[in-house]
Amino acid sequence: MERAKRVIRLFMKNRLAAASLVVFIIVLLFCILGPLFTPYDYSTIDVKNCWQSPSLQHPMGTDGIGRDTMTRLMYGGRTTFSITFTAVLISLLGILPGVAAGFWGGRVDNIISRINDALGAIPTFLMVIFAENMMGWGGGNYRYAMGVALIPPIVRIARSATMEVVGKEYVEAARALGVGSTGIILTHIMRNILSPIIVHVSSSLADTLVMCTLMGYLGIGVNPPEPEWGNIVHGGYAVILSKPIQMIIPSSLIVICVLSLNLIGNGLRDGLETGKERS
């Protein structure tokens, strides 16, 4: 665990990454705790006050049918993040076949790699649109398709990390000594996989977030009146020329999140890579 402490220390040194982490946590808190403090509900319609600019009453204005944008952003964040995190979590299922392929090699590796390549050859959003098409629109069903689409890189990373460990001489030495080989090997494999997977997850969180909001923007996402960040941006499109602020606010929030996730990812990568060298 000293390695973890070292990694955290290096990460904190990278002020940009540390700042991004803080920003991201703030946004998360905004989405999780925010709704407790808002007097509005995300579907309270108040057509008289539609398309309001930010004011004391509505700190981020209102949308096309008078709903408070800030509240919608809070709830929307919950939705967006839940979809994103679910998708990324599903993608972690790829660790298992990856390790299997690396560990056993030969035909097992061959089969798994072929399937993986076929899966990876399908462009993500086409698969998502196709899945959504088949599974019924709305409800964020596409999170499963997104998760599946994110599997191939994970399988590849797990596979190569496993092969690295399996090829190392100390594993053979351990085997020769007859020291409970499977246990040792699995521990080593898990330790070796951890860093690249973490780095990849942080960057894929950012990309998935973008893709999720993209779907929302195109109207594929969740059904109205449920808010989702992409949805909210889409809503603001109607008045883009007269009241561009309506699109700017949700877009900025999204950009801030993606940027922080990317910077966190960079910081993690630097921290983990130097950490790896030293150990």
Partner: peptide, 22 residues
């Protein structure tokens, strides 16, 4: 590169429209 990859296309579109149209 970091900025470009963090900017979703629609956000960029909004910015462009703001600058060039409005």
């Amino acid at each position: 590169t970091l900025v470009m990859s963090s900017l979703p296309s629609y956000a960029l579109a909004v910015v462009l429209v703001l600058i060039f149209c409005l």
